[in-house]
């Protein structure tokens, strides 16, 4: 297992290099010249030229890339064109907010999705099953901003149960938790619907496998048959969906952060893009891409931890 994880980590290196090159090249796709943007509309040619040299923009692209990457490895993502603030600092706070939101909503969607999926599969065609599948169809198709607004109106404005904005950035405090509850539900709803469906369908498929019959023939309780023998086998597709959805949660966070006024990386990116704040765009995209890669790694390790056949091929 340790060997497998190590192998996977080694394999990550080329992926990360590829990602960083893609992120770096992204700048060349965006119209506008960085030096002109920094210098402002009234700048003279000389001023622009000075800035170009100062930023090293006159050097060949690969030199610029190497310079950028040597900074990245030291934790230096450059400085914002807009504010002059260190990008790494600006991102750190926002990233924690977004990650809190994404992890929280992932937890909600896993707990909700897996339990409803199990019950729906165990009591197939019951009213619970139909209700769950109905709600999940709705959950998959309803846009998250709409669900967010609905929750705000009901729980925030009408019932006054939950705060509608003002997340303090500390999910681990009671106040932070309460502030993040509604955004996390909003964000996780669609995902939990998908997880619920996937859990149900893969359980229903696995329940017809021969080894389930074997377990029953041994005298194993039906509850254990499902929760141990069937669920463990169903976990592979479930984890795949959870992993994919987590990426979706990061992306979806942009919308939900706007609805609930959370200071997250999604909003930061939107602001940075509209201001052509290149270092900020690069830094935040790199961070999000890095997160994706790590999620993939975790998913792969979980596969191997669950299924002994995976390490061998």
């Amino acid at each position: 297992m340790v060997k497998y994880i190590f192998k996977r980590l080694i394999q990550l290196i080329p992926v990360l290099i590829g990602v960083s090159i893609a992120v770096f090249l992204m700048i060349y796709l965006i119209p506008g010249n960085a030096a002109e943007i920094i210098a402002g509309p009234t700048a003279t040619k000389e001023e622009i030229q000075n800035i170009t040299v100062k930023l090293g923009l006159d050097k060949p692209a690969y030199i610029q890339y190497l310079k950028y990457m040597s900074g990245v490895l030291k934790g230096d993502l450059g400085y914002s064109f807009q504010t002059g603030q260190a990008v790494s600092k600006a991102i750190a706070v926002r990233y924690v907010n977004t990650l809190s939101l994404a992890i929280f909503s992932a937890l909600i969607s896993i707990i909700l999705g897996v339990t409803t999926g199990i019950i729906a599969a165990a009591k197939r065609n019951s009213w619970f099953d139909r209700l769950c599948m109905g709600i999940s169809t709705f959950g998959i198709s309803a846009p998250s901003f709409w669900i967010g607004l609905l929750l705000i109106v009901v729980f925030g404005v009408k019932l006054k149960l939950l705060p509608i904005s003002g997340f303090n950035g500390k999910i681990w405090t009671a106040d932070g938790f309460i502030h993040l509850l509604m955004p996390a539900i909003t964000l996780g709803f669609g995902s939990s619907a998908m997880i619920s469906r996937m859990t149900r369908s893969s359980l229903l498929e696995i329940i017809h496998q021969d080894y389930i019959q074997t377990a029953r023939a041994k005298g194993v309780k039906e509850k254990i048959v499902i929760l141990k023998h069937a669920l463990k086998n169903a976990l592979i597709p479930i984890i795949t969906i959870v992993g994919i959805n987590f990426g979706g949660l990061l992306g979806g966070a942009v919308v939900v952060e706007s609805v609930f006024a959370i200071n997250g990386i999604g909003r930061l990116m939107v602001q940075a893009i509209s201001a052509r704040d290149f270092p900020m765009i690069q830094g935040s995209v790199l961070m999000v891409a890095f997160t994706f890669v790590i999620i993939n790694l975790i998913v792969d390790i979980l596969y191997a931890a669950i299924d002994p056949r995976i390490q061998y091929n």
């Binding site: 496998q209 021969d210 080894y211 019959q213 074997t214 377990a215 029953r216 023939a217 041994k218 005298g219 194993v220 309780k221 039906e222 023998h229 463990k232 086998n233 669950i306 299924d307 002994p308 056949r309």
Partner: peptide, 28 residues
């Protein structure tokens, strides 16, 4: 009852199946 039947399965009556490739749980 189901619970009584479970005490018989695997203890008083054992059963084996056709395909040993699929009759054992691959994850245990």
């Amino acid at each position: 009852k189901d619970s009584e039947m479970r005490m018989i399965r695997g203890s008083k009556i054992g059963m084996i199946f056709q395909d040993p490739m699929t009759s054992l749980n691959p994850l245990f």
